[in-house]
């Protein structure tokens, strides 16, 4: 195995393209190093992207933010303006692992690892975040919900890597929230994760909503029916109940060591309701 530290996107793309699939991108490394140690992956070259400026910056852009794929959880937590605009997204990042993990782990890595249970992904989906990808044929943009195509599988082609995310601007009276269920208080992988983002008009009627759902299908889902249950309502308990039903209908989980089908389906609704109430409160206060 070789270790390479390119300083530009172009160099990184060349290295990955030359590796012909035998390359792995290193950002925070909190998933990759575990996979290397266990022998799950045996790359010819590891391409550390952290010297590429765009992967490490948070910049204001069109009322929203451009966030580098390798920005760490700890850095996101310290970015007050971003946290104010998208508290649910930042909370989701903060839930990844311990303080030690937060010192390294990134949203980009969390997405590219393509675990169905990744914490940031439902929150990013709810936020309508876009992925910026560099590759041999130039750059392209993709909504987060289209990035993963299955457990451990992404839309990235040979030579491509994820450079940054766009988190959009948002109208007044908007709020988002992310909740996950784990058996302990920390250090577990989500059994279920739900991100909710919504916007209200001046009368308190929901005019826009997006709901992301994790750990209950092969990839994190954008649940349009759940959002539809909220849009046009005052997000009253009846609307929330309808949203919960839509969430449970969207679940296609498996039984595994972390949860059962029945449990995941039931708890996804519970968390969706709770996350929705937090998002609503934030929208009302913003």
């Amino acid at each position: 195995m070789r270790y390479e530290v390119p300083e530009t996107k172009g160099e990184a793309v060349s290295l990955l393209a030359m590796a012909e699939g035998g390359g792995r991108v290193l950002a925070g490394g909190t998933d990759l190093l575990v996979q290397l140690r266990s022998g799950m992956v045996k790359p010819d070259v590891v391409v550390d992207i952290k010297k590429i400026v765009e992967t490490r910056e948070i910049t204001a852009e069109n009322g929203g933010f451009r966030v580098g794929a390798a920005v760490t959880g700890a850095e996101l937590d310290e970015h007050k303006a971003l946290k104010k605009l998208w508290p649910g997204v930042v909370e989701a990042v903060e839930l990844i692992g311990s303080t030690q993990i937060q010192g390294r782990a990134s949203m980009g890595g969390n997405l590219c690892n393509a675990s169905p249970a990744a914490d940031t992904v439902p929150a990013l989906i709810a936020a309508g975040a876009q992925c910026h990808i560099a590759g041999p044929d130039g750059e392209r943009t993709l909504p987060v919900e289209e990035f993963c195509t299955g457990p451990g599988v992404t839309n990235l082609q040979t030579g491509e890597f994820l450079v940054s995310f766009t988190l959009p601007s948002r109208p007044p009276h908007s709020g988002d929230a992310y909740l996950r269920f784990i058996p302990r208080t920390e250090m577990d992988i989500a059994v279920v994760g739900v991100g909710v983002s919504l916007s209200l008009d001046s009368n308190g009627i929901c005019v826009a909503a997006r709901v992301g759902l994790g750990a209950v299908a092969a990839t994190a889902l954008l649940v349009a029916e759940a959002a539809d249950a909220l849009i046009g309502t005052s997000v009253d308990e009846g609307a929330i109940e309808n949203m919960i039903s839509a969430i449970r209908s969207a679940c296609r989980p498996i039984d595994d060591k972390r949860g059962t089908i029945v449990y995941r389906t039931q708890v996804s609704g519970v968390l969706a309701g709770r996350a929705c109430r937090i998002a609503l409160q934030r929208a009302e206060q913003s």
């Binding site: 270790y3 925070g28 490394g29 190093l33 575990v34 140690r37 311990s98 030690q100 993990i101 010192g103």
Partner: peptide, 11 residues
């Protein structure tokens, strides 16, 4: 920054 040394490549 607090990190786990097992999750950092020496390089």
């Amino acid at each position: 920054r607090l990190v786990c040394a097992c999750l950092v490549l020496a390089a």
